[in-house]
Write a protein that binds this DNA or RNA. Structure first.
Lengths: 219, 219
DNA sequence: ATCGTCCTGACAGTGACTTCCACTTTCCAC
DNA sequence: GTGGAAAGTGGAAGTCACTGTCAGGACGAT
């Protein structure tokens, strides 16, 4: 609890004209979640994920353990939860319209990645450390990626200019999403020295090229 | 504990001339593990993974809970543990020699898949049900697949006729392994009506074709 | 101010998993 | 065979993630 840089620079409701002003309740909730996640990450980095108990985190954030579970559900979610996935999912439909899943993926990544990952690479790296190196968090991360693959597959399968059925869409989306996972791991192993988005694009291109050997040819 | 069809048709040591005859200790151990896994799966199918406690499984298999943990480490491993992965890993080096990871994957799958999955598809399907539909088991399965991807990536990167570096190898292997995961899910959702190996090969081909659009071209 | 609604903290419980120890079984000379 | 070393087994005690419940307090509309 050394520092509390948790005030958002701009209140969401002030920035988005259409949104109804958040009540005190919602603002408190958002603040508590931010504080919890911040405290938790700090503790995880310092003592290791497994050594830190929920009770510990709760005490440091001045809430009860019950509240932690109400907000995050699992200990792993304290590390994994963010708005990144929803963003990618939101822009997905318009990107895959032409039937090129991998291509749409690259476009979407450029779009979301630049706005999200470019800024706080220091924090992101430390967070990624806990994510990739703690087995239980890593496992939960895969579950999340898996869910994302399923959501994308549904979007792809329902996309008009698309020639993949449900099963094929799942295969392709799983491959693409997990390639991103591998790319992030590569980025992390390189101590975050290079650009995440660029590395992810490179990974996707690598898989494309590797897969192209012996493919039936461009459809 | 309704049935105990757990005697192997042929003792391993009898079938493999080179192997030293297993001592009583090892034979007991193997038998107990088989019994435990059988009982556990039976209980999981009947009552659901989450409703069955380790204590329950241990009691039904006539061992103490301690022994279950000594043998399997986690509850999930009771579902996931098998010799399949090691087999695939064992044949991997000779298949990827030509630098075509996806192609080598298809060959390896045909090799191992036929011998392993062709026979007991009924049991495999019920086991897959627990695997895919229980979140914690599913997560552990991803961790296992992830480990496999890393092992394969190392093999690929060290393979002589290969032009991928460590990072590229990880990306490609992750994509390939997770594609298999998706294929198994597709197979399961189809109630196991079609051939697993064929469906997996089809998935790999689908990913190849999808990836080939916009690829830099066959190397 | 006030009343219904939502949220919080406290409590009690379950069960996975770990660690440790006394006891038994298997193995291996001899 | 037999005795001692090595390995395995069961049991007990403990930690901690996670769940469900419930009374009291804070919030929001009136």
């Amino acid at each position: 609890m050394s520092q509390e840089p948790n005030q958002p620079a701009v209140e969401l409701a002030d920035a988005v004209p259409g949104a109804p002003r958040m009540g005190l309740r919602e603002r408190k909730r958002a603040a508590t979640m931010r504080r919890l996640q911040h405290v938790a990450l700090e503790q995880f980095e310092e003592h290791g994920f497994d050594k830190v108990t929920i009770e510990h985190v709760a005490a440091h954030a001045d809430v009860s353990p019950s509240t932690v579970y109400r907000y995050f559900g699992t200990k792993e979610a304290l590390v994994l939860k963010d708005e990144y996935d929803d963003q990618l999912l939101a822009v997905a439909p318009m990107l895959i319209a032409d039937g090129d899943v991998f291509g749409g993926f690259e476009k979407g990544l450029r779009l979301v990645g630049d706005s999200h990952l470019g800024l706080d690479s220091g924090l992101t790296l430390r967070r990624t450390r806990v994510w990739l190196e703690t087995p239980s968090v890593r496992a939960a991360g895969f579950l999340q990626a898996d869910q994302m693959a399923h959501d994308l597959a549904r979007i792809v399968a329902e996309s008009p200019g698309n020639d993949l059925d449900d099963e094929q869409a799942l295969s392709v989306c799983t491959a693409a999403v997990m390639t991103v996972f591998a790319a992030i791991e590569n980025w992390y192993r390189g101590a975050g020295g290079r650009d995440v988005v660029e590395m992810t694009l490179a990974s996707l291109r690598t898989v494309r090229d590797a897969a192209a050997r012996g493919a039936s040819g461009p459809a």
